[in-house]
Write a protein that binds this DNA or RNA. Structure first.
Lengths: 188, 188, 188, 188
DNA sequence: TATGAATGAGGCTTCATTCAT
DNA sequence: GATGAATGAAGCCTCATTCAT
């Protein structure tokens, strides 16, 4: 892939993220994306087969990257559940707009996206399970649900609704996990 | 409102809930709703100004009813946090399809719906706060976030994804609150 | 089907025939047809799934009607090959524009239409065969090819290109068949 | 024209013939042609002004070549009508794909092409007239129509539809002319 | 009140053509 | 000459909404 081709695709990608996040998948027109990207309507179709396709590629990118990042932490045996969650929250915060699309658009954007969303949720829960079972001796599924739900609440309420900064959110996370797990963590 | 008018509107209401839940707001056509309801296309517009309007009315109905139900429990000073949560879960379970639309479509269906959704979330959190502060002496916002997130996880994962029955879900709820609060509740 | 519905479909049908005949299938836009018919763009899609569909329905109509008409003549045992051909030519002349579409657009409008065209051609040849074998004792396939080709030449050259009137064309037909068959026919 | 330029143009020419014949003029995209030719999209426009232009050049080439070939036969006073027709059929068979485009696409590809087609048809008929009037003493226009139609039927039905081989088709031709003319020809 | 045919603005996508390299 | 990414006009089709009956 040539440099210029890569650039054009990236421009469209960035514009799509921004537009999907602002207007939502269904209200976003391809013409909005290309206007934001500064390319012609037809150019969009050189890189994506459809609007659907574009969203799917974006979500897969976030999905894979996030899981990969967490997996690497897990392989480092010294990572605590706090490290994992903080890493997750940081990534979501970094990709705020794209995450918004993933977490709050996917369920209503068609079967394909719903499946991707639930695959993601399942993966996150599995990772939490793994770390919890290594870390504590009274692991159970309920704890996974509590933490998984708490993470989503942090994102939904503190990031999206209240729009708080990362440090404040990590503080909430720390306090929450402390309460849930009854343990103290080193902040990272 | 005459009896027959009420019936027609109710037919459309029910059809709309079913269709929105099955196909999502954006993929639902007015023609789908009226086909399901067994009335003519034009009839829809005798009762609703628009497709948006119809969804909004539905969500407000769920919103108000749910808050009202919880409020009544709160006014009965003996209600525990478990009672409140169980009542909430039961109602969501009862209006499974409509709730699905509310909890997972609203954020992506336009500004108006997003506002309604966050108003609802805020109300639920406030009620939890109120009960918690009456019930425990170490109440804090973090606990509200944990419980609020846990409730949504129960709905998202156990009701929508795994499609478990009400009793199983209430069991999860009980175990979760026990873990969060470190207390035992009377099951209702 | 209500009267008004029938009328609208007929209006579109007529407009489609005219437009297809004038501009050809590929150059005809749905917007041309509806403009000619005096209805809205969307109305077209109440009656046809697509432009393809519309053409197909038109051609089938001509196809079936023409075959039916000839079949009835054949069942009357006294019909000569001249009667059959004259009846065919008259029908083509009557549906001049639609026939033009069938005979000269179908082969280039996609597989489906090509198949319909060759089915039609085969049917016509079979009918000619049947009548010839009843009428003469030295019937053979070559004669069928000669007559079939002659008929198409009459249409292509005298109707479409020279735009001659029906009587002149029937005169050509009479002379041609006389030459081919070496017999004299009663003009009908 | 340089050698390499000639090669590129020829590659595109050949690809265009193949593609037009397979998919028809309207369904053929310039991108199909260049893919088949193995050149870049822009290269097409170094040799042709437009897709229309390319088809027109192709058809003119077939047109002129065919007429030229027949004219040479006519100048040789000993050529019979069978020689002329056989030569015509052989050429059509040799340029099967291109002929398909000419004979069955031209009428529906726009005014310019329709004119070219009828010019061709007129030329063929004139040549037949000329030979017939030299060969027989009871020449008339009807015979021209019969032979012209028969030739097209041979192409349409036996070449395109039944896909028979050249010898078989020439046999049909021989039998047909024998029947039409009541004479015996030397096969060439 | 109820109907359902008709509307038409608007979105998605295609593809012939251009042009900078 | 050759390339192929970029263009953008144009066309098909959808569907929320209207309105005459």
């Amino acid at each position: 892939m040539s440099q210029s081709k890569k650039n054009t695709k990236q421009k469209i990608f960035d514009a799509a993220i921004k537009t999907f996040a602002e207007k939502g998948f269904w209200k976003t027109k391809v013409s909005d994306i290309v206007a934001e990207a500064g390319v012609a309507q037809g150019t969009f179709y050189l890189y994506f087969n459809s609007k659907d396709d574009c969203l799917y590629e974006l979500l897969e990118y976030l999905h894979k990257g996030t899981l990969h990042q967490i997996n690497q932490l897990i392989e480092n045996k010294q990572s605590t559940i706090f490290d994992i969650c903080a890493s997750f929250i940081k990534r979501i915060y970094q990709y705020k707009m794209l995450s918004k699309v993933f977490l709050f658009e996917a369920l209503s954007s068609g079967e394909k996206f719903k499946n991707l969303y639930f695959r993601f949720k399942k993966n996150i829960r599995d990772m939490l399970s793994k770390v919890l079972s290594e870390e504590t001796n009274n692991y159970n599924e309920t704890t996974v649900s509590i933490i998984s739900g708490f993470l989503k609440e942090l994102i939904e309420y503190y990031i999206l609704f209240l729009n708080e900064d990362l440090d404040t959110i990590l503080k909430h996370l720390y306090e929450g996990l402390e309460k849930i797990e009854g343990a103290r963590y080193e902040k990272i």
